[in-house]
């Protein structure tokens, strides 16, 4: 008998597929959080593999802030259509009414649109398990989170009282109103994600590739002026060759100057770079242990 040694990517792929099949078998109403970023792209691709030839037996949920890049909205609709999956878009009606935006409202923007928006959407549709694309290499409190992460009826995470999680035997049981957040990409690193996108030829938002884009420098971040809602205080957008290592709300997401136009070039740049991925996001810098706190409150 010949031995076939699985590569680390094959093992990670199998693990993610195993996790997704467990959720579909045990949850009453699962959903996949789809943020249109590269991790979401990989997660969606894995979902197609897990259930082929059936389409993934759950909908995609985009918790929208109305402030994403235009390119993201375009890919979102196309990707859902190609996968044959229902796409649910949720915008927090209160945030919409109050005109919450990242320019005037600081951290309230994230709280209202993302944290509250997510909770509303899960409650509204009665989803009891939600896949998220978070990885343990992203941030210190994530490094400690279980793959099946239990949430109380008020969506709280209790980091000091996590369920033990042995082997690949996951406990998905919960009482009514409680839910699970499930992270099939927990053990992937940023490099794994990029390499997998490269090998599997997965479509990602063009913003990850370098191109000439209108940008301004503000608070140490290089921001792209993606539409005319961007208030310019006398600044003049400058065309720079930039790309994004991570994608969120465009006024909160810093670009990096780059000439990387292919995936190998992106990976090369990432490997030789000396700053971590989340640095481009304003959200983590607010306070020490900020992500742990946000997660306890229900942020993904």
């Amino acid at each position: 008998m010949s031995i076939m040694t699985l590569t680390h990517l094959q093992r990670l792929e199998a693990e993610a597929i195993h996790i997704m099949r467990e959720v579909v078998s045990e949850a009453e109403k699962p959903v996949m959080l789809y943020s249109v970023g590269k991790d979401s792209a990989v997660m969606l691709h894995l979902a197609k593999k897990a259930f082929y030839p059936s389409p993934p037996p759950f909908p995609l949920l985009h918790v929208d802030t109305t402030w994403k890049f235009r390119d993201m909205y375009a890919l979102r609709d196309r990707a859902a259509r190609k996968a044959g999956m229902q796409l649910i878009v949720h915008q927090n009606p209160e945030a919409l009414r109050a005109g919450i935006n990242p320019f005037d409202h600081g951290s309230l923007h994230t709280d209202m649109w993302k944290t509250e928006g997510l909770k509303q959407a899960l409650d509204l549709h009665g989803f009891d398990a939600a896949f998220g694309g978070a990885r343990r290499d992203e941030e210190k409190s994530r490094a400690k989170e279980r793959i099946f992460s239990f949430r109380t009826a008020s969506h709280r995470w209790d980091p000091k009282n996590q369920r033990p999680e042995l082997w690949r035997t996951y406990n998905a049981r919960k009482n009514k109103g409680e839910s699970m957040r499930v992270f099939p990409l927990s053990n992937w690193t940023e490099l794994d994600i990029w390499q997998y996108i490269h090998l599997e030829n997965i479509e990602i938002v063009p913003l990850y590739y370098a191109a000439e884009r209108p940008t301004v420098k503000r608070d140490g971040l290089l921001l792209m002026v993606d539409d005319d809602r961007f208030p310019l205080n006398g600044e003049k957008p400058v065309m720079r060759s930039v790309r994004f290592r991570t994608l969120g709300c465009y006024p909160l997401t810093g670009a990096v100057e780059s000439r990387a136009q292919t995936l190998p070039e992106i990976i090369q740049e990432m490997l030789l770079t000396t700053t971590s991925e989340r640095q481009g996001r304003a959200i983590d810098h607010d306070q020490a242990a900020s992500m742990e706190k946000k997660k306890q409150e229900g942020y993904f």
Binding site: D137, K140, S141, R142, A143, K144, P159, A288
Partner: peptide, 21 residues
């Protein structure tokens, strides 16, 4: 030590997963 309680108490409470190649 990633959790706030761990940094405060200077001990490891829960498993932390780290990656290198």
């Amino acid at each position: 030590d990633g959790l706030a309680a761990e940094r405060e108490q200077g001990i490891t409470i829960d498993v932390a997963y780290r990656f290198f190649a």
